[in-house]
Design a protein around this nucleic acid. Structure first.
Lengths: 109, 109
DNA sequence: CAATTGGTTAGCCATAATGCTAACTAAATC
DNA sequence: GATTTAGTTAGCATTATGGCTAACCAATTG
C-alpha cells in the first residue's frame, strides 16, 4: 500500500477491528481477552490484529506466553487530520460561494 | 457491509478515491475531468466512483451526456466523529492515569 | 514431568476488489 | 446524417481479504 493513510483507513473499514480499537481506548488487553467477544476462530482474529499493527494503530509486546496489545494514538490523529483538512477546504469553498452570493446582492442594490 | 462506517472508511482506504475527494472539495466536476489525472481505464475509474457513491461520499447527476459529481460532507463528518470519540475516550483514560499518578504523589507527601 | 493455556504457523477455500478490453448507447457537433 | 464525445455494460484475469481446521511451540500449572 502506497500511503500510510491507505493502511489506516483500510484497517478502520472493518467492524471487528474498530471494535478492538474501541475496547483498547479503555485499557490495554491480552490477545485472548480481545478475542473473547468476537465470534471467530483465534487465527482469524489474529490476522485482524496484524492488520491493525501493520497500520500502526496498535502495538504489542509479549511477556511470557501472553501478548499485550495497546492502542497507538498517532495514526488515528493522522486520519482525523486528513478529514479535517477536507472539511476546512470544503468550508473554504462554501465561504467563497457565500462571498459570491453577497457580491450578487451588492450589485443588485 | 454491516455498518455505514465500514463503507466510508473502506472507501477512504484507497489513494485514487481520496484524490477524487480532495479534488471535489474545490468544486464539482464531470466524470472525465475527474478521470484525467488518473492512469487507469475509464471503466476502472468509474467503479471507484461507484464505491464513493455507495458510501454516500459523493452524489452525481447526469445532464445530457455529462455526469457531474459533487462531494457530500455528511459521511466525512461521521467518520471524523468516530475518530474524535476514540480520541476523547483515550484522553479520558490518560486523565484517569494522570489522576492515579497524582494520588500516588499525594500519598507519598 | 504431564497437562493446560496462550499464541502461532501453514494451508485451504470462497468471495470481493481492482485492473483490463471490447462492444455498446446516447448526446453533441460538423 | 455521419462523426465524435461522454459514459456505460459485460466479461475476464489476478490479487487481496476474511473465514476455517490442523498441527505446533512455549510458558504455566498441577
Amino acid at each position: 500500500m502506497a500511503n500510510q493513510l491507505d493502511a489506516i483507513f483500510s484497517a478502520l473499514g472493518d467492524p471487528t477491528r474498530r471494535a478492538v480499537l474501541e475496547r483498547l481506548t479503555d485499557e490495554p488487553a491480552a490477545v485472548s481477552d480481545l478475542h473473547g467477544p468476537h465470534n471467530m476462530a483465534l487465527p482469524t482474529f489474529l490476522r485482524h490484529l496484524k492488520v491493525l499493527e501493520q497500520a500502526g494503530l496498535v502495538r504489542t509486546h509479549k511477556t511470557g506466553r501472553v501478548r499485550m496489545v495497546h492502542i497507538e494514538a498517532d495514526p488515528l490523529a493522522q486520519a482525523e487530520t486528513w478529514l479535517q483538512q477536507q472539511r476546512s477546504l470544503w468550508n473554504g469553498r462554501l465561504d467563497r460561494l457565500d462571498a459570491l452570493v453577497q457580491q450578487e446582492k451588492d450589485v443588485k442594490t
